[in-house]
Amino acid sequence: MSGTDILRVNALKVHFDVGRAPGGGRKIVHAVDGVDFTVRRGSSFGIVGESGSGKSTIAQAIMRLVPITDGSVYLQEHQISGLEGQSLRDVRGKFQMVFQDPFSSLNPRKKARAAIREPLDLLDIGEARGRDGVAEDMLTAVGLHREAGRLFPHQFSGGQRQRLCIARALASRPELIVCDEPVSALDVAIQAQILNLLRQLQADMGLSYVFISHDLAVVQYICDDVAVMYLGEFVETAPAKSLFASAKHPYTWSLMSAALSPENERGTLAKRPLLGGEPPSPTAPPPGCRFAARCPFATDRCRAEKPALRGFGGGHKVACHYAGELEPPLPELKAA
């Protein structure tokens, strides 16, 4: 791994056994089916996709919250996918997580200060006596009052709770934070506060983020590199600027066409080519391109032969047989 990379994920697969299949054998959900990516130190790597695409499973696999079926995850020199027990705990402090729902991700029985110092207690980081002080420093770092540490989670608003969760993730001085939809449960006004806080903490502390979201606009605001995920696989991955300037995969286009904006004219969506249908089941992914069933450009080749990620220069990779040949449906993308 080169010195500038903080996280490297190789051919990661996470499959879940969900019981007997009707025709005999087991029913296997291919939640994540072979993804590769690296996160540069101090940068944010965004993963966008719809529900069921497997984006949250990647987050949980990195955090070792779900069993990894195949592949490896390296945090700097540590192969965290192979660690167990104490040796895993020894490196846990370096990577932490912020969850989607600030209401269910805090233990209702723990005061804010105890919640923030919990990782330090569990991982035995630093002097026990100094941990309350660390917790209070973290509270101020996320824009809360030091004294707020004496309160219980239910005494905070949603936005403040998410600040608490961030403070907790920061306590062990991690280098990488995995953020799983950290703003999607929040009101718009609060969402902006949290996004700006995440950006500012990154600048101040040199943090790296894996940032999971379903919202392209939010990902564009936060991330340096982006992967678009569909049914367990990356269909397009590129530096953010390149992706939003010249996306090449039909699925990425359909996400972009479906995005709403306050500036849009009334009925804008009706004029855009919209994707029909819904993703097929991840238990029995189709043999060819997984997007073929919904893709307006799909041919017999797409249904039979699986496209690999191909490079288009500048780190822009697309998994589509016809990438670069197709006409994007959005005028903005054509110009670029």
């Binding site: 846990r92 997580m97 969850f99 989607q100 729902d101 569990l122 969760c165």
Partner: peptide, 26 residues
Amino acid sequence: NLEYVKAARAAGAGNAYLMFRVILPG
């Protein structure tokens, strides 16, 4: 299944801690 249990695991909690210090009180 609540996220705070996952959060505790991500923070380094083991099974015994999760069972008796996190889930049981709740």
